[in-house]
Amino acid sequence: MPGNDDAQAQRRAEDAALLTRIVARDEAAVEELYARYAGPLYSLAYQVTGAERFAQDVVQETFVAVWRDAVRFDPERGAVGPWLFSLARHKAIDLVRREQNVRKRTADVDLEFEQADDDVDQEAWLRIRRERVRAAIEELTPLQREALELAFFGGLTHVEVAERLGIPLGTAKTRIRSALLRLRDVLGDSLSDAPGGAVLEPGASA
């Protein structure tokens, strides 16, 4: 859908402009970036940690890290959105790994995705993309989905996924890899937040 692509390209350019302002020490730009991403980052952090208090810490630490390290962000390597999600997910996993009891709780939770209340789900772009990725997840086999969800949302290492499911490490790796590749194929062109530079590199299509 060209309209969607244009809108995503515009969002990406606006995100990059906000980062430039943050590098120039513009505090208002942090607040604008927060307005865009606090909801989805908090949702991710909650899904990983399973606790509001920890999710709040993750979001706060993520934006403070953006303020501190914005200059290190390399637009050649990707868009701002994936960078933020990656920062938040790593912080959430670190926290879960430090807090053994939280980790156990999270690992025991069946990772059901809930529908949003209207007042939480105010942003159209977010709703559209959430529905799209959830539909893509439905395309996975149950075994692929289970392994990927434990690794991604559960924050388990490949070794821990294998132990938890009682399967060989190689099998766990295969399930996680094939799940990611399947999602890439299903999401296809709509992966517009993926870094453009690397994908367009000469020889990349080979």
Partner: peptide, 8 residues
């Protein structure tokens, strides 16, 4: 990286 950002 793009897949993981969508997955989030």
């Amino acid at each position: 990286d793009g897949v993981l950002a969508e997955l989030a």
